[in-house]
Simulated assay, not measured.
Amino acid sequence: MTLLGKLIRLARIERKLTAQDLAERAGISRALLHRIERGDPKCSIGAVFEVAAILGVPLFQVDHGRLDRRLEEVDGRLALLPEAVRTRQAPVRDDF
């Protein structure tokens, strides 16, 4: 979700669209668009697909050469994120 959100943000900036303009075209709020761009997993998948379709972000048929170049820009930032936010807790011993 984070990667798709970053690709959507890059495509919006490349097309010189403001967040407000894109949100109006997609029929969503600007706040929802910002959540999509941040990769919030609670966003409606329909809204994410609508925004991606408007911007021309490939969802299923990927041009690997173009995508690889874009992902290199994003990859460095994503590599810095931790694998998990919460530490694993010891299993509960419930044998009485």
Results as ranks from 00 to 15, higher is better:
T2G: 12
T2Y: 06
T2S: 03
L3D: 01
L3P: 01
L3N: 01
L4V: 13
L4F: 07
G5M: 10
G5V: 04
G5D: 00
K6D: 10
K6M: 14
L7G: 00
I8K: 08
R9F: 00
R9G: 02
L10W: 03
L10Y: 04
A11F: 09
A11Q: 03
A11W: 06
R12F: 11
R12E: 01
R12M: 01
R12S: 12
R12Q: 04
R12A: 04
E14N: 13
R15N: 08
R15S: 02
K16D: 12
K16M: 09
K16I: 08
L17A: 11
T18R: 13
T18W: 12
A19P: 02
Q20V: 08
Q20N: 14
Q20S: 14
D21M: 15
D21R: 14
L22Y: 07
L22N: 07
A23L: 04
A26N: 09
I28V: 15
S29Q: 07
L32C: 05
L33T: 09
L33S: 01
H34V: 15
H34C: 04
R35Q: 09
I36K: 07
I36V: 15
E37T: 13
E37M: 06
R38Y: 05
R38A: 10
G39E: 05
G39H: 07
D40A: 11
D40R: 08
K42Y: 06
C43V: 14
I45P: 05
I45S: 10
G46Q: 12
G46I: 03
G46Y: 12
A47L: 08
V48H: 05
V48E: 07
F49H: 07
E50Q: 13
E50T: 15
V51M: 07
V51S: 10
A52R: 01
A52P: 03
A53R: 15
A53Q: 10
I54T: 05
I54L: 15
I54Y: 01
I54D: 03
I54V: 12
I54F: 08
I54C: 07
L55K: 08
L55Y: 08
G56I: 07
G56D: 00
P58D: 00
L59F: 08
L59T: 15
L59D: 04
F60A: 13
F60P: 03
V62R: 11
D63K: 10
H64M: 04
H64D: 00
H64G: 02
G65Y: 02
G65H: 02
L67C: 06
D68Q: 11
D68K: 11
R69D: 02
R69S: 03
R70A: 05
L71W: 08
E72F: 06
E73R: 15
E73Y: 09
V74Y: 06
V74W: 02
D75P: 00
D75G: 11
G76L: 13
G76S: 01
R77H: 07
R77N: 00
R77A: 12
L78V: 08
L78D: 00
L78Y: 02
L78C: 04
A79P: 06
L80A: 14
P82E: 09
P82V: 12
P82Y: 02
P82Q: 03
E83R: 13
A84C: 10
V85W: 05
V85K: 04
V85D: 05
R86M: 11
R86T: 01
T87K: 09
T87P: 01
R88W: 06
R88D: 06
R88G: 08
Q89K: 14
Q89G: 04
A90F: 09
P91Y: 12
P91Q: 06
P91G: 11
V92F: 14
R93P: 00
R93F: 13
D95K: 11
F96M: 10
